[in-house]
């Protein structure tokens, strides 16, 4: 049975809760809490992508667009219209859902390469719009002055406060998604992945399931985008380019897309790589990413979470 054990989730939650305190004890990693905010934001996207790609088997190379739509809708509505950020966040998710539905419904009829190209083209089109609609988005110069978040007078105005806010969302999304995976709906998704003819012969409405996960993963990306915008108070289009979509792909491939934990591990490693460990590579980090993605594809088809299983079968074969 596919069970996602409760104990690791509890340990994970405990680690997340204590992490800022631990980080602040060690001066060298004091700023890690700040990076962990971004890890959390990216985790929201990869959790949805893992469900979409790893479980349901539908590829997307365009999720940077949904991330961007969330960020820009939040940014535009709060700065230009002074709306409450939380309401903007919900509006952003609704808008993203509608766009995902419109793009997803025809796209998800496509398979494999076609779906990859369709999502890729969609992502680039949205990126061009962010750059061109200067009146709304500020164009390539970006959009400053996006307000921070507060709730009932409580301001999320420090790294640690925002950290807990973001990770509360991540934990909720993780548990929600894990519940889906362990239910009839999750089985239906995995069924679609292995054999569409057999899945539909079991009564699975393939089109409906695909569109639901696609929209779900897009809405999570939108939420991540809103949180990103309110954290940095500034956004510009380059964050939401094609390379970010590929980076998301690297995250879930490295972590292992067949397992929801892979989404967390991948987001964690790649975010730390790009924010911290690859600094001295500067722009050439793209070579490192390409190499990681290629090596993982060839040698770790199930990602890092698949390593224990690989070792086990390797030992078994040795004996």
């Amino acid at each position: 049975m596919l069970q996602i054990a409760k104990l690791p989730i509890a340990i994970f939650a405990a680690l997340i809760i204590t992490f800022p305190w631990m980080a602040h004890q060690i001066p060298v990693i004091d700023h890690y809490a700040d990076i962990m905010v971004f890890v959390g934001i990216y985790c929201l996207i990869t959790i949805g992508l893992s469900l979409l790609m790893g479980y349901a088997g539908q590829i997307s190379v365009g999720h940077a667009a949904f991330f961007g739509i969330g960020a820009y809708v939040s940014g535009i509505l709060t700065t230009n219209y002074g709306l409450n950020p939380w309401i903007c966040m919900i509006i952003a998710m609704l808008i993203t859902a509608v766009i995902a539905l419109l793009v997803g419904a025809p796209s998800l009829k496509l398979k494999g390469h076609y779906l990859a190209m369709a999502t890729l083209a969609f992502g680039i089109i949205i990126f061009i719009i962010f750059n061109e609609e200067i009146e709304w988005t500020g164009g390539p110069d970006g959009m400053p002055g996006i307000p921070g978040l507060s709730l009932f007078g409580f301001k999320f105005d420090s790294v640690d406060k925002y950290y807990y806010l973001v990770w509360a969302f991540v934990l909720a999304a993780f548990i929600f998604t894990a519940n889906i995976i362990q239910s009839d709906a999750g089985r239906a998704l995995r069924a679609i992945h292995t054999s569409e003819p057999a899945a539909s012969a079991m009564g699975v409405d393939i089109a409906k399931f695909k569109i639901i996960v696609f929209v779900y993963s897009a809405v999570l990306a939108s939420l991540a985008g809103s949180l990103y915008a309110h954290y940095l108070n500034f956004i510009n289009p380059s964050t939401f380019d094609l390379f970010f979509s590929i980076k998301l792909l690297i995250m879930i491939a490295l972590g292992g897309m067949h397992n929801i934990w892979g989404a967390i591990i991948g987001a964690l490693l790649i975010t730390f790589l790009s924010y911290e460990w690859l600094h001295y590579f500067e722009e050439f980090e793209v070579i490192v990413y390409g190499a990681i993605l290629l090596l993982v594809t060839i040698f770790l088809p199930n990602g890092l979470v698949g390593v224990p299983e690989m070792l086990k079968s390797w030992v078994r074969r040795k004996n």
Partner: peptide, 24 residues
């Protein structure tokens, strides 16, 4: 070198190659 080629892994492999070439 890909041992179990599926559409998904082949797409990812060529994407990986593409950013690798671009980086180089």
């Amino acid at each position: 070198p890909i041992r179990q080629p599926s559409v998904l892994t082949l797409i990812i492999a060529t994407i990986a190659a593409s950013i690798l070439i671009k980086g180089i």
